Simulated assay, not measured.
Amino acid sequence: MSNEEEEEATVEKIEDAGHLEADVGARFDQQLSGIDPRLQIHMDPLSHRDLRPEMMFIREELRQAKGQTLAVRRTALKKLLLKDFMQEDCELRNIGLAYAPPDP
């Protein structure tokens, strides 16, 4: 497997993780927004079942997963930008138009 194929596979995995994370997060947000703020808990004990501690723990796990996914995306983007910059710099050096150093 070449580097290009590995990068493509990594990008696809990152996109799939992002879609799954967005779907699950959107479902939780939809459930939370569906709760009427005027509803009394003692009148309907199941009205706030989505705010139980186990559900909030799942939401925290989702936040952490999102942070990890963003970190992976940032790292992948940084690698791609650095690779692109190095390739461009090499091509410019070959024709004698390299970037000027910041402190001559």
Rank of each mutant, 00 (worst) to 15 (best):
2 S>W: 08
3 N>D: 13
4 E>I: 04
4 E>A: 06
5 E>S: 07
5 E>I: 05
5 E>G: 02
6 E>V: 07
7 E>Y: 01
7 E>F: 01
8 E>Y: 04
9 A>K: 06
10 T>P: 00
11 V>P: 00
12 E>I: 01
12 E>V: 01
13 K>T: 12
15 E>L: 06
16 D>T: 07
16 D>P: 00
16 D>G: 04
17 A>R: 05
18 G>V: 02
19 H>F: 12
23 D>H: 09
23 D>W: 10
24 V>Y: 01
24 V>D: 01
24 V>G: 00
25 G>R: 07
25 G>K: 04
26 A>I: 02
26 A>R: 06
26 A>C: 06
27 R>Q: 09
29 D>N: 13
31 Q>E: 09
31 Q>A: 12
32 L>I: 12
33 S>A: 11
34 G>T: 02
34 G>A: 14
34 G>K: 03
35 I>V: 08
36 D>S: 04
36 D>T: 03
36 D>A: 04
37 P>Y: 00
38 R>W: 12
39 L>V: 10
40 Q>D: 15
40 Q>Y: 06
41 I>D: 12
41 I>M: 11
42 H>V: 11
42 H>I: 14
42 H>E: 14
43 M>G: 09
43 M>S: 15
44 D>Y: 07
44 D>I: 01
46 L>S: 15
51 L>Y: 04
52 R>L: 15
53 P>T: 02
54 E>S: 11
55 M>Q: 06
56 M>N: 11
56 M>V: 10
56 M>Y: 06
57 F>T: 15
58 I>M: 08
60 E>C: 10
61 E>S: 10
61 E>H: 12
61 E>K: 14
62 L>A: 00
65 A>E: 05
67 G>H: 05
67 G>V: 01
67 G>L: 08
68 Q>H: 13
68 Q>V: 10
69 T>V: 09
69 T>R: 15
70 L>V: 08
70 L>S: 11
70 L>P: 01
71 A>N: 03
71 A>F: 05
72 V>E: 04
72 V>W: 01
73 R>D: 01
73 R>Q: 05
73 R>T: 03
74 R>S: 10
74 R>M: 10
75 T>H: 13
77 L>H: 07
77 L>R: 05
78 K>N: 09
78 K>P: 00
79 K>V: 07
80 L>G: 10
80 L>H: 12
80 L>T: 14
80 L>W: 09
82 L>T: 14
83 K>V: 02
84 D>R: 15
84 D>W: 13
84 D>T: 12
84 D>P: 03
85 F>E: 06
85 F>I: 08
86 M>Q: 14
87 Q>D: 12
88 E>R: 14
89 D>F: 09
89 D>M: 07
89 D>C: 06
90 C>E: 15
90 C>N: 15
91 E>C: 05
91 E>V: 04
92 L>G: 00
93 R>C: 08
94 N>P: 02
95 I>K: 11
98 A>T: 02
98 A>D: 09
99 Y>P: 10
99 Y>N: 13
100 A>Q: 08
100 A>R: 11
102 P>T: 03
102 P>D: 05
103 D>Q: 10
103 D>A: 11
104 P>T: 08
